[in-house]
């Protein structure tokens, strides 16, 4: 926080009014409306009868919804490991002095995050296809693992591998580059002399990654985890494009379930309840992940650093007061 400059409340208000108003109108008013609709038996017309907590009672018993919630958690876990984990490894590789064409890898790596999720779903659906897909073509024609395409796995049936794993791969693929760039940025702020001295001391690549880089960019990794949780709790597009939640409801996620309830079953009241539930559950998961990270990933060094930071701020404030009293400003 700044101590020397303190704009008037009026100025802050003037600056913040427009963005906050726009944000609240577009993001929170519909959510509040959904909160209200969630208490009605609204079937998608002008008639909305108050139905009390009936929708919430239904939600608690709704196996499909909780199964979807489980699938969202699966996606979160898969993407934290896949996106952030692989991105971290790739960053370590890219930063090695043995690697060439660094800028090309960065440019190409980030490319998938520029295309729409619907398009990604469409492309991956074809990659997974049993008879004409790329994966099976590779397995059959290149590796000769199967006699023909018809004997190769039907990936989108979820028989060869769990369907949620199959669906997380495109998501991971799409956003590795995004996290790679964020981690790269944190990486670039590490003092290279630390790494060099570690190398001279005989630390190998893995040790350097685990004991030096990881602790130094931990905060950035926290940010990545938060973004990853937020993104995957509301996952929709690529799953909609690939399986529509199928086979059956085995790959259903919460947002898609809410969408289906609203549009396919015209249970808009219940659909609204689901939206509210997604929001609340996402908050809980984010809160939970922060708590876990703070408890298990903070070591004494961090605590010490936080203490020092607080002390420094306090000192600065005191100095400020002193200066003010001295009438220097």
């Amino acid at each position: 926080m700044l101590n020397t400059i303190k704009p008037r409340g009026r100025v802050i208000f003037a600056y913040l009014f427009l963005p906050v108003a726009l944000f609240v109108f577009t993001v929170f008013v519909p959510l509040v409306a959904a909160l209200y609709y969630g208490f009605t038996d609204w079937k998608g017309g002008p008639v909305k009868n108050f139905s009390g907590l009936a929708n919430y009672a239904q939600l608690f018993k709704d196996e499909v919804f909780w199964h979807s919630f489980g699938n969202n958690l699966y996606l979160v876990a898969a993407c934290i490991i896949g996106q952030i984990g692989i991105a971290f490894i790739l960053v370590m590789l890219i930063n090695s002095k043995l690697v060439k064409l660094k800028s090309i890898h960065r440019t190409f790596g980030f490319f998938p995050s520029t295309i729409s999720a619907l398009c990604v779903g469409f492309v991956w659906k074809m990659i997974y296809d049993q008879r004409t897909g790329l994966i099976n073509w590779f397995l059959v024609d290149v590796l000769h693992k199967y006699k023909g395409m018809k004997d190769a796995p039907i990936w989108l049936n979820g028989e060869a591998l769990p369907i949620m794993l199959i669906l997380s791969i495109p998501l991971i693929w799409q956003y590795i580059g995004y996290y790679m760039v964020i981690i790269l940025s944190a990486f670039s702020s590490i003092d290279t002399s630390v790494l060099e001295s570690a190398e001279i001391d005989g630390a190998n690549g893995l040790q350097r990654a685990l004991y030096i880089v990881f602790p130094l960019i931990k905060n950035t990794l926290f940010v990545c985890v938060t973004l990853c949780v937020a993104g995957n709790m509301k996952a929709f597009d690529s799953i909609y494009a690939m399986t529509e939640g199928g086979p059956g409801t085995s790959s259903m996620v919460m947002a898609l379930y809410g969408y289906n309830q609203s549009f396919k079953s015209s249970n808009l009241g219940y659909g609204s309840t689901i939206s509210v539930a997604i929001f609340v559950l996402s908050l809980a998961v984010i809160g939970g992940s922060q708590f876990l990270l703070n408890t298990y990933m903070t070591d004494d060094y961090d605590k010490e650093e936080k203490r020092i930071q607080r002390k420094r701020e306090k000192e600065a404030r005191a100095a400020m007061k002193k200066r003010m009293k001295g009438g220097r400003i």
Binding site: G245, G246, G248, K264, S265, S266, N267
Partner: peptide
């Protein structure tokens, strides 16, 4: 009938 009936039967047929 209504969409909610078929939205139960259709995914169910896949299952």
């Amino acid at each position: 009938l209504g969409g909610d009936v078929w939205n139960t039967l259709n995914p169910g047929l896949q299952d």
